[in-house]
Design a protein around this nucleic acid. Structure first.
Lengths: 206, 206
DNA sequence: TTGACTTTTGTCAGTTAGTGACATTATAAT
DNA sequence: ATTATAATGTCACTAACTGACAAAAGTCAA
């Protein structure tokens, strides 16, 4: 029962064996998958292959990841969600007019920052995923979801001060710029300063 | 043999029975699919359902359409290719600096024009496809392919006068704006003037 | 530690998209 | 009519998922 008393593990802050094993298995699945993707290629690796490597049933794989794409792009979605959260917890003390633009800029820069923090993970995933249509499509859809969420959030933020279509336009271009910056950065081996690159691109738009 | 002599049908300009039947069947498959999609929803309609309606084997369906998504989004891809072709056959008499921007603007406006010409077809497809993740992802991937093709084409066009990254940025933002304009237009029932809307959005970018 | 409770897992059966191979049928050309 | 060519159906197969249910493992209180 979770509503009668707090369990021992929760009191001490330890996650308990069950939780620990779950995290461990998730990690193991992800690592095994990435390894196989690198070795044989993404499309040449089946869920079956991954499951056998980690010695679980294919059914269990799907209890940890809703799809094969999610193994590769989970972190990307996480970073996008973090960008949204960053926007949500941003103080709204800006001048009316530029409020949305400034907030958006801050959010995409934060996303860039998170990418840089995990540059090797993202570089690896990018190198596996590039040229795989289903993964690219999944990725773009994740960006679209983020775009929509950004719009809704900003709309609450600025109230009715801005039309939705104008907001959407602003968000879409920002996400497009973020995507291009990411692409260039990753194509260059994730070596340079992504935030600087992104800022440069944002400026080029005026 | 196609290299010995031109066939009778080709001489007269008539496509021949085989070609006519093929076009007819493709049309029939597409119409049946759209009808079923509307009735039961996209995801509730299987290839099997479509095939039975047109009285063909599921295998034959795949000889006409490479995927279920393609039935819905084939026209979209066609329009994108037409936009590319428009760009390819555009006179390159513009001033160096603004050449790429002007050409791109012309291309996306041409795409908008084609959308308007088939507004009911696209509206129907949009209403079926909206909220279906796999279709949305497929659509975004088609836009990405177009984006890449635009970049390569423009790069040839302007020579080395522009860095690829700057070109990509330009194209990506234009495609994003086109996408938003399309979305707004379709959400409004494809009633207004898409080209005017798109021009307005392009101006808003400066 | 036992015993009840909950979560995780494997197994099984099923659906659906998509593909290759090959024989059969329909169209085309001579 | 005959031969070449292209379209179709059938069959067999892979691979990504999903629901249902029973077995196994983890949790917690007595």
């Amino acid at each position: 029962m979770s509503d009668t008393a707090i369990s021992q593990q929760d009191q001490v802050g330890q996650p308990g064996l069950r939780e620990r094993k779950k995290r461990l298995l998730q990690e193991a699945i992800e690592q095994a998958a990435l390894k196989l993707f690198l070795q044989r290629g993404y499309e040449q690796t089946s869920i079956q292959d991954i499951a056998e490597t980690v010695m679980i049933s294919p059914r269990t794989f799907f209890r940890y990841f809703p799809s094969k794409e999610e193994v590769l792009l989970g972190p990307t979605r996480t970073v996008m969600r973090a960008g949204l959260e960053h926007l949500r917890t941003l103080p709204k003390a800006q001048p009316e007019d530029e409020a949305a633009r400034t907030a958006l800029r801050s959010a995409v820069l934060h996303i860039a920052h998170l990418y840089q923090q995990q540059r090797y993970s993202f570089l690896l995933r990018y190198q596996i995923a590039r040229q795989v249509p289903s993964v690219a499509a999944f990725y773009l859809y994740a960006l679209l979801e983020a775009e929509t969420a950004f719009c809704h959030l900003l709309q609450e933020r600025v109230g009715g001060a801005c039309e939705y279509s104008q907001l959407r336009l602003l968000v879409a271009t920002h996400v497009a710029i973020l995507r291009v910056a990411l692409e260039q950065w990753l194509d260059g081996g994730a070596q340079g300063d992504l935030q600087a690159l992104l800022l440069n691109y944002l400026e080029a738009l005026h």
